[in-house]
Design a protein around this nucleic acid. Structure first.
Length: 389
RNA sequence: GUAGAUUUUUACUGCUC
């Protein structure tokens, strides 16, 4: 049983929810072992977004039928599953069930609930739960605060988020890198460049290790603020700090160049990331295609697209890649080429155009006085919208 | 010998403010 439970955990940490569920189902049949509360809880922890949460409730019902009593681990996993699916009402329901069954929550279950409520933008309820912890004499920890702080920041409530940083300090909970990373990321969403760099300095002053997520978040701040030059400074600081940029760092830097319309620099970075052993992915390429589109560099964009389709190491283009080029054709009034590419993207590459692709081509036709083609395409788009994916 | 919670990236769109 212990071995099987460990395997279930391994599935959970690798995101193999399907395997976890299958293993749980077959435990008794194949190994003659009845799943215990840990088995069920682990399987629930493996659940991923998109409808999996209902599965969790099923499992809960099943374990009760089998006479296995759910415990706080079971319920925390379930609350977490609700959070992943952005279902704060369900998370509250689960918490109520838990209480009704006399299962006493701990700091983890409370934190999970606060996280679920925060992600659902139910800040007052989240604060109430935080307050409730005090009543039952549970001390919120750094993760409890981080969960709420992150949610507040994402919702644009930067002031409240940084107030929470002071609150946790007051209660003797030391902020960690994740706390600051959330705040810096919040600055990105609120276009608060100055404050972001203040947080960065504060981390250093308090000896809280700046990590790769910190720097990536700082890059994201620069991207949102459209300041590619300060992004370059952050990017240079990776080396000074002995941190190797990862694919996210490069992609965010590319996004900064995209915002700043720096297509030449973007192309250089795309090459240099490859040289430094970080293989550009679809996001990297799409970002460069986007900046080429912004600068109306259709030819260069087409070449890059061709490279993506033919090279073994490059990712295959998707609908976003094609749409960038279609949009570029639109801006440069190259309706014929747009129509041609729209056809080949599906017929030769199996990529179904979306509404954005169609609209680019339709606009291109309009611009070039090809109103008949435009009307036809509009009709095709309407008809295809009814089709199942 | 086994289980649960928090942070970062792309064209457009949508959601929220």
């Amino acid at each position: 049983l212990v071995g099987l439970n460990s395997t279930l955990n391994a599935c959970a940490s690798c995101g193999l929810w399907n395997e976890a569920l299958e293993l749980l189902e077959s435990m008794e049949r194949s190994f003659g072992v009845k799943p215990d509360v840990r088995s069920y809880s682990s399987a629930m922890a493996a659940l991923e977004p998109s409808g999996q949460f209902e599965k969790g409730l099923e499992l809960l019902g099943k374990m009760k039928l089998e006479g296995v009593q759910p415990n706080k681990f079971t319920y925390s996993s379930l609350i977490c599953a609700c959070s992943k699916e952005n279902r704060w009402e369900k998370a509250l329901e689960v918490a109520e069930m838990m209480e009704a069954e006399g299962v006493v929550g701990d700091v983890v279950s409370y934190s999970a609930l606060i996280d679920a409520l925060g992600k659902g933008r139910q800040f007052e309820r989240a604060e109430e739960v935080l307050e409730g912890m005090r009543i039952v004499k549970l001390k919120p920890n750094v993760i409890t605060y981080n969960s709420l702080m992150n949610a507040l920041g994402k919702a644009g409530k930067l002031e409240q988020a940084s107030r929470l940083l002071r609150t946790m300090k007051k209660h003797g909970v030391k902020a960690d890198a994740t706390s600051y990373n959330s705040l810096i990321s919040a600055c990105a969403h609120n276009n608060a460049v100055t404050m972001a760099f203040e947080f960065l300095r504060e981390m250093e002053a308090r000896n809280i290790g700046v990590d790769i997520v910190t720097l990536n978040s700082a890059l994201s701040v620069c991207m949102k603020a459209k300041t590619w030059k300060s992004a370059e400074k952050v990017f240079e600081s990776f080396q000074e700090r002995g941190i190797e940029p990862d694919i996210i760092s490069y992609n965010t830097m590319l996004a900064c160049y995209n915002q700043g319309k720096q297509w030449k620099r973007a192309l250089v970075l795309l090459t240099s990331m490859e040289d430094r052993g970080v293989a550009p992915d679809l996001i990297s390429y799409n970002c460069v295609l986007s900046v080429l589109d912004k600068n109306e560099k259709c030819q260069a964009a087409l070449e890059l697209l061709r490279l993506m389709s033919t090279s073994d190491s490059a990712p295959n283009p998707d609908v976003v890649s094609y749409s960038c080029i279609l949009n570029c054709f639109k801006k440069t009034s190259r309706a014929d080429e747009a129509v041609k590419l729209l056809k080949t993207m599906e017929s030769e590459h199996g990529i179904k155009p979306n509404a954005y692709s169609y609209m680019a081509v339709i606009d291109a036709c309009d611009r070039c006085g090809m109103s008949e083609e435009a009307a036809q395409l509009l009709e095709v788009m309407r008809l295809r919208r009814q089709e199942p994916d």
